[in-house]
Amino acid sequence: MKTDRSIIAIPMGDAAGIGPEITIKALEKKEIYDVCKPVVIGDAAVLKKAIAVVGTNLKIHEIHSPAEGKYELGFVDVINLNNIDVDQLQYGQVSAQCGRGAYEYIQKAVEFAMNGEVKALATTPINKESLKAAGVPYIGHTEMLEALSGAHDPLTMFEVNGLRIFFLTRHLSLKDAIATMKKERVHDYLIRCDQALQRLGVRNRRLAVAGLNPHSGEGGLFGWEEVEEIKPGIEAAVKDGISAVGPVPADSVFFQALNGKYDAVLSLYHDQGHIAAKMTDFHRTISITNGLPFLRTSVDHGTAFDIAGKNIAESTSMEECIKVAAQYAPKFHS
């Protein structure tokens, strides 16, 4: 077992969802303890309930700070916030207490990350409706982390099997996304993508920009976005010293990056990059939030209320989430 393992904080997520369950399943695996020291920020009673659901012999080890952890296989080191009434807990149900709890776990994890007690966060799913019921003024992790850390406009990156994907636009209609594909935005994002890769320890960074139209527009035959906006944005970034090419047709660029031709691809819209990542390996696609003062990785699925508490939930994504955090934590430059 490595002696220089980084401490990784795992906020437990929504207690009524699969977060506690997949956390327990992940922490049954020796390979997790081989690469890091995982500390759960959550509620000990909820985790004990999850241990019963999973049917494992893991022992809860309550601590007050990450420095007190055992970090040994067989024990779950927990910062117990004791903020869930388990007698009122119902799996699969929207709940104000679970929404409030999920926020408080993240809040505490950020506090530990900001003062250097943990090296990274590996986050589990939270539920937007539960957050709303609790009066939490954020719709998701990214917004919370941005506010709690004082960061501005964090940048999302997916990673799966060595394929890295950034997103020029995310939750917009395709029509609105196309309207925002301006050369200034492409230029700015390529600079930020390069900076993000540098913080993760990637050297000699090579970026490719995916095309929007079939065959990247064929010089205007199938659309002018590449000619008028996307290519000029790439050229401006190259003048600033960024190693970037494109637009490369979207039907080949992700395959090329997966096979090592590029270190990352800038996807132009939400589904373009999501489809590429999830078709590569749905369960091992991990989200990394760049632009924060600390490293944060996340599973790329929701609370799965329909299967919570049934010992059905797959923990592969959670395991990968923790492993990726452990992989980048020693290289990450804040």
Rank of each mutant, 00 (worst) to 15 (best):
F282G: 07
S315D: 08
A67S: 14
I63Q: 03
A313C: 04
S6Y: 15
I63A: 02
T180W: 09
Y71L: 07
F167G: 03
A151C: 07
R203E: 13
Y105F: 08
V160A: 00
L197E: 04
P11Q: 01
L168K: 10
K323V: 05
G201F: 03
I32W: 10
I242L: 05
S65C: 10
A109Y: 02
V35L: 09
K331R: 13
T142S: 07
M279P: 14
G92W: 00
G291K: 02
R206F: 08
A113Q: 02
L292Y: 03
I7C: 06
K2W: 14
K108G: 09
M114G: 01
L47K: 11
L200H: 03
K29C: 11
A151K: 04
G260R: 02
S149R: 02
A15N: 12
L121S: 07
S317V: 00
D34V: 09
C321H: 01
E68G: 04
E68S: 04
F167E: 06
H301N: 00
H301M: 01
I288A: 04
V238N: 12
I84M: 06
T289N: 06
G241L: 02
L163V: 00
C36V: 05
N213E: 03
E229W: 01
A26K: 09
V227W: 04
F167C: 05
D87I: 12
T180M: 10
D251A: 05
K59L: 11
K175L: 05
K278C: 08
E117W: 13
E111L: 10
S216N: 03
Q256T: 13
G116S: 07
S317Y: 01
G309W: 07
T156F: 14
M114D: 02
M318W: 06
H187S: 13
F305V: 04
S149L: 01
A276M: 13
V238T: 12
V227N: 02
S267I: 04
M1V: 15
A109H: 03
P293Q: 05
I322A: 07
S149E: 01
D240N: 03
V299A: 00
I8V: 10
E184A: 13
S95D: 11
A122P: 12
A50G: 09
Q97E: 08
S334G: 15
V54M: 03
A264Y: 07
H333L: 15
D43R: 08
D43A: 05
A177P: 08
G302E: 04
G309H: 07
T124G: 08
L155F: 11
E117P: 12
L207K: 09
R100W: 11
N290H: 14
I191L: 14
P137Q: 07
A50F: 09
V245T: 11
F112D: 02
A9M: 02
N80A: 07
T3N: 15
I307M: 00
T142N: 06
